[in-house]
Structure formats: structure tokens, C-alpha cells
Design a protein around this nucleic acid. Structure first.
Lengths: 263, 263
DNA sequence: AAGTGGTCTAGACCACCTA
DNA sequence: AGGTGGTCTAGACCACTTT
């Protein structure tokens, strides 16, 4: 059997003796303690990938908890993707793999939240005829007038990203008002403002810097970059705004951990 | 006041009359029904961004539910990022923005799960001297021997992605065994196999196809692509395997929806 | 002190799967 | 039929924030 290389003694030098208890006086909630015990057992190979976890009822009984608390513990592992619940059947240990993973825009959020160190320069703010991607993204006829705004966003004094934004040209629209606001930092596409959008769609794409972008962002033309496209919809579900951020992968690393990391 | 363009009458043509009830005979769980009511109120502007949701206790009372059930409903919105809970203070409606978002590798998962339509060709399987990225990623000395495997993965008969993988050369290691297995599909980096890794780290990068990749994947050299790097660690927390997938953005779209989409 | 989210209990019933 | 996860109740106490 191939797995003989990975028998228990080799897997888990710090063997788990099965005597783990829940410390009800601990500041750590019981469900977190149980979740940690389960994680440790998974990482030690006691619960192998593909196998079934003890039922929530038996966990509750064994650890002296109520069923809801045991369930909450299993829920932690389920949210982390370590385990998969199947109604009527059981909870099964998942094998780790590249596809069970997701990437958050934490780096972007951290930068946008740190308002004190943010600065914005308007590179361009005009009205143009619609054509190409913005035209189809906003669902407007070719040649219709669109507001175009380009911004250079600096973080801690250094160029961070370039944003390009399009919107239908409507003098009464507060979207256009906001787009043309020079204090754009407190404007669209950031959490810290009064937004008039209820939903949006983001798309992450690989791209490379053109010469202008490379110069503005202190990079090299042709270097690879992320392009984060965004479409926001207004209250009548019409696409109201389209645009994208261009940012280098160094400034927005997309990293994801899978499996058991905290033991 | 700028928001005058967005007063209630304009926001919500299908006004919510506040008479929503929980149908306890419905097949839809009560907490889902309440979550939907809350979402609708948010999308209708009844709960504006930044404002506080009714407390879980008052929701429970108003809708005739127990506190736990009301809490579960609010939890749905919290998981979706529509709302943020602050202990001791309340639950607040979040404004939508680019940074409150995450991208899953659904497309990759769908392909890797559909084993019937998958095919793998080994492009290369050799032992080389370590240098460069694989060398530092695996934490081995320059010049140490590494197993290198390159695979072309086809989906429904068409080239889908190229994978390159490195591992320390250890004749006894089942990792190497698995890497050199020509039936690699049922091998490493996929969920549907016996894995000997307990944790891994993924990194998503922008890249472009080189000539070989472009030819194998029916694309053009210089076209932008995603590069999904992966490092897996063995039971002693040593990096055991390093590699990456190269895949075109058309075949692995990374899309994320934010805000209220189901009304 | 009052209100809020966070945890927890000891039950209960249901939908689903497997034997 | 029995086991499993999924939902739900009606309480309780705690930690934290606001007043």
C-alpha cells in the first residue's frame, strides 16, 4: 500500500492522545476549541481525506456539548473548506487542491481604508463618444456621449494604481457629479462614501502596462499587471458605471492558503 | 442635499409595505425568508448604507422567531458582506465597493471535477539541477536535483492548461512516484485522490504565454494569461512541491458579484 | 444601566441518505 | 428504520458598547 510511507508515526510526531477536553472556563469559545481539536486530528491524519467525521451528535456527546455547539464547530471547518457536509450522509474530510480556494482583495482594501495615506490625481476628465468596451459594457449605442475619468491613485506618496471610469453623460446624474469630483477619494468605488449603487460585478484579468501606465506607476512597459474591471448597476438595474483598476501584482498580491495551517 | 435624486420614490418603484411575514409552512427555511426580506429592504433603500439594522432581538420579536433564527438570518447577510456585525454596537449595512469581494476558482474546479472529459499529456518528465524560482520556493540549495514534470491538460478534447511541477528528487518519496505517474489526472493537485499534503499556498499572477505555451494552447505568444502558482507542504511543514498552471483568462474567468443580486 | 452581538443549552422536528 | 445533517425554540449568560 502506497500510503505506508505516511503511517501515523511518521505523520504525527506530536501524537494526539485522544484525551482532548473542552475547557469551559477558557476565554476561547467551546466551538473554537472543538474546531481546533478537529483540525489537529485532520492534520495528524486521524481523520483521513475522504473519510467521515464523527457525527455532530456523537461529537456533542463525547465532548459534553450541546448539539448546536458541536454543529458550530464543524461549521468552522466547513467554511474553511476543510470539510464538506452532506445531508443525511455525514461530514467528510476534503482533500486539498488548487480549486478549493478563493482570493480576496485584502491588499486593495487595506490601501483604500488607509485614507490618511491616500492621494488622488485626476489625469483626465472629459466627455467622449462611446466606442469599444465601455460602449458594450454600459449597453449604450455607439457614439453616445460618455463621461471619462482617469485617476492616478497614490499610496504613501508612491503611485499605486490607475483607475479609468466611464459613465453615461447625464448632467442631472449624481454619478457624473461624483465622478467629476476632484476629491474622488471620498467618491465612487470606495466603501467610505454614500453610494447610489446596490450591486456590481467585478472581473479580474491579466494585462500588461502600456507606456503611459508604466511611466505613471514607475514600472516598465510590457510588464504584467492585474486589471480589475468593475461594472456598477443603478436602482433600475441598468449598468451605470464601467471602469477598471490597473495595478501591479507586487502591490496587490493574491495569495490563498488551503488546508490546515493553525495547529 | 445631493441624495435628493435618490429619494425613496425613485429608489423603490416596487415599494415594500413593511407587512412581510414569515411563512412557517413554506419549504423555505424561516431564516432564509428573513434574510431575503432584509436584503430587499437594503436594496430598496429602507436600510441605507452605513445605517444600523434592527437588533437581532427586535427582528426576532417582530417576525415571531427565536433569537437564534433571527441571528442566523443576519448571518447570511454578514457572510455575503452586505452587512457587518459589531459586538455591543449593532449590525451595519455595508457600502459596496471593489475591495469587498473575493474570486473563486470555480471554472477550474468544474473542469477538474469533470473527469470524463479530461485528458493529460506528459510533455516532460526529467530530473534537473535546481535553480531560480523552484529552487527558492522549495528551499533547496542551488544545484540540488529536482524532479520536473510538465503536463498539457486537455478538456473536452481542447487544450486547457499547462502545468509545470517541481519536487525534491527522493526515490523513496511517494510525491515523486505520484508526479511521475502518467495517469497524472488522478494524481497530485486534484481533490479526487489520496493526497499526502495537509496544507498549501496558492498565488495568482498575471503572465503571458511564451511561444511554446501559445502553440500548445492554441493561443498567441505574448497574450495575457493567468499563472496560478502552488506550493504544497508535507507533514513536517517542508515545502515538498512547487509549480504552476498557465491558463488563459477566457478559460478561467474570475468574476465576483457584490451587493444585492437576488431580489 | 440598557442595549447589542456572541455563545450555549437541552430539547424538538424535519429532510435526506443508507442499509 | 436508524443515522445524519438542517432547522428551530425559549430560554440563559457573557462581553462589549453606548448612554
Amino acid at each position: 500500500m502506497v500510503r505506508s510511507f505516511f503511517d501515523q508515526s511518521r505523520i504525527s510526531p506530536t501524537e494526539s492522545d485522544g484525551t482532548e477536553k473542552i475547557d469551559k472556563t477558557s476565554y476561547l469559545p467551546a466551538y473554537v476549541q472543538l474546531a481546533n481539536i478537529l483540525k489537529q486530528r485532520i492534520s495528524a491524519g486521524i481523520y483521513e481525506p475522504g473519510s467521515r467525521l464523527p457525527s455532530e451528535a456523537s461529537l456533542a456527546k463525547h465532548f459534553g456539548l450541546s448539539a448546536m455547539t458541536a454543529r458550530q464547530a464543524v461549521g468552522v471547518l466547513a467554511e474553511e473548506g476543510l470539510v464538506k457536509r452532506v445531508q443525511g450522509s455525514g461530514t467528510f474530510v476534503q482533500r486539498i487542491g488548487v480549486a478549493t480556494s478563493h482570493f480576496g482583495l485584502d491588499a486593495l482594501r487595506d490601501v483604500f481604508m488607509d485614507k490618511d495615506n491616500l492621494d488622488v490625481r485626476i489625469l483626465k476628465a472629459t466627455v467622449e463618444s462611446a466606442q469599444g468596451a465601455p460602449c458594450s459594457a454600459l449597453g449604450v449605442a455607439n457614439g453616445e456621449r460618455l463621461v471619462v475619468v482617469e485617476r492616478l491613485i497614490l499610496y504613501q506618496g508612491h503611485p499605486f494604481t490607475i483607475q479609468v471610469g466611464y459613465a453615461r453623460f447625464d448632467p442631472e446624474s449624481p454619478i457624473v457629479e461624483t465622478m467629476l469630483d476632484t476629491k474622488m477619494l471620498t467618491g465612487l468605488f470606495f466603501e467610505n462614501t454614500t453610494s447610489c449603487f446596490m450591486k456590481g460585478e467585478l472581473r479580474l484579468l491579466p494585462a500588461f502596462f502600456n507606456e503611459q501606465e508604466a511611466e505613471l506607476l514607475n514600472s516598465k512597459a510590457g510588464a504584467c499587471a492585474f486589471r480589475l474591471e468593475h461594472i456598477f448597476y443603478d436602482f433600475s438595474d441598468q449598468p451605470a458605471s464601467f471602469g477598471w483598476f490597473t495595478v501591479s501584482p507586487e502591490k496587490m498580491p493574491l495569495i490563498s492558503k488551503v488546508g490546515v495551517w493553525n495547529e
